[in-house]
Simulated assay, not measured.
Amino acid sequence: MDDGHSLLQPALFRLKSGAQVRAGWMAHDLPFLTRSLRFLMRADSDMLRREMALEPGEIGIIGLLAENPGISQNDLAMSLVLKKSAVTKLVQGLEKRGLLDRQRSESDRRSNELTLTAAGREKARAVHLRVAELHRDWFAGIPPRDQAVFFSVLFRVVATMAERSGEAAAMDGGGSDD
């Protein structure tokens, strides 16, 4: 029976001690791999936030606002899969630092529309460039096509889980009519 492993190199952890540890089925366990990846990326992520003078969560806000000027604060929270109260606190901090503007929606007075200021757009560009540098390091030796497939599949997994959990609106890799 072909379980997909024949197409891939054996999944091995090559340790500093010289030992090689077979990952076995754990090489296909998403919670295990994402936890490991988060741990291994933590130092780079912390360094990025320090360099850019940003708090955890603010990079996601700035990145989504750069692509979605005028997004409602509620839609932003759903897209980030964060509690509205957490996003409110982060938005207030970014607003105080002059990186975003928050205005009441003309169509729904209960809702805020968010846009980046000129300083916020510059910060978003700087973060994007720095993240691209980190990605070059993280994906060294992995062909661009494989990277594109990785992100496409990962985004679809996130979208499927978000839709299923009701935590966020259905996501897709392209445009949306919503």
Rank of each mutant, 00 (worst) to 15 (best):
A27F: 05
N68P: 05
W25N: 08
M41N: 14
L64P: 07
R35V: 08
L40N: 12
I71Q: 12
A86G: 11
H28P: 06
K84P: 13
L65P: 07
G24H: 11
D29T: 13
L48A: 08
N68M: 03
V87H: 04
M78C: 03
M41E: 13
L48F: 01
A66Q: 07
E67K: 14
R35L: 07
V21I: 09
L80P: 11
V87T: 10
G57F: 01
M26A: 10
G57D: 02
E51R: 08
S79W: 01
P56V: 04
I61E: 00
V21P: 11
A86S: 13
F39K: 14
R49Q: 13
L30S: 09
L54C: 08
D44R: 13
K84I: 02
V21G: 06
N74I: 04
S79G: 12
I61D: 01
F32N: 15
L33H: 09
M47W: 05
T34L: 07
G60D: 08
S45Y: 03
D75W: 02
L37P: 02
F39H: 12
G24M: 00
D75E: 12
A43Q: 15
R42L: 03
I71Y: 03
M47Q: 14
A23S: 07
G70K: 06
D29V: 03
G18K: 11
W25Q: 11
G70P: 10
W25F: 00
M52W: 05
L37D: 12
Q73G: 11
L65Q: 01
A53H: 10
E67A: 09
P69V: 02
D75V: 00
A27Y: 10
L54Y: 00
L54N: 01
S72V: 00
T34Q: 12
L76P: 13
K84L: 05
L64H: 11
T34D: 11
R50M: 04
D44M: 04
R42M: 02
D29E: 10
R42D: 14
S72P: 10
T88F: 00
E55G: 08
Q73H: 10
G24P: 14
M52Q: 13
V21H: 11
S79H: 12
A43F: 11
V87K: 04
L37R: 14
A43G: 14
M47E: 12
S36A: 13
N74P: 08
I61G: 06
M52G: 04
E58K: 09
S36T: 15
Q73L: 03
D46G: 09
L80E: 06
D44N: 15
L33Q: 14
A66G: 04
R35G: 14
N74E: 10
L76N: 12
P69S: 06
S79E: 14
L40P: 08
R22I: 00
E58S: 06
P69A: 01
Q20T: 15
A43L: 05
L33S: 04
D44S: 09
A77M: 03
N74M: 06
E67Q: 11
L80R: 11
A19M: 09
L30C: 04
L65S: 03
T88Y: 04
L40V: 03
L30K: 10
L76C: 07
Q20G: 15
S45T: 10
G57L: 01
N74T: 15
A23F: 03
G63S: 07
L54Q: 06
